[in-house]
Amino acid sequence: MRYAMAIDTKKCVGCGDCVVACQTENNVPIGFCRDWIVENVSGSYPNVEVELRSERCNHCDNSPCVRCCPTGASHIIEGGIVKVTHDECIGCGACIQSCPYDARYSHPEGYVDKCTFCDHRLAKGQTTACVAVCPTNCLYFGDLEDPNSDVSKALKNRSWKVLAPEAGTKPQLYFLT
């Protein structure tokens, strides 16, 4: 089992619904977020291109945040999901600095928080809150080891890229281009 997500940059309109749905599902305080939107503009008028993408924790195979955690609060669970045990986190922030994707934030209650791939929903056979809400259906989630999962199918038929491959983290968010 290897959970991963593919994000179709050709369909994402950058509406931010994934951000709000995550906030309400996971009780993320307003002013903070576990996922966010990036807009890349390139070229010059009138030959301009825009790439919109929904980003979150890359749930890396080679996770610097897990390696650098002094208490073991940051850990990897079944399916490759990177999680933080809030009670064990001392809020030192080393993981925040080590993450090339800026995917973690300091929760006002003193611990570090981040995307969980909604593992509480996966346990019930549901998909993540962001995938379930996305009006453009531009997010594909599932098990990379299952060739019939949405994410496997999406990656099979399209070209894709990962972010900051030079960091060597083996990220598991794939951006369809």
């Binding site: 950058g14 002013g31 977020c33």
Partner: peptide, 11 residues
């Protein structure tokens, strides 16, 4: 971390 509508234009 907090600007979650980010513009990271090239150049």
């Amino acid at each position: 971390r907090r600007d979650f509508i980010k513009i990271s234009a090239a150049g």
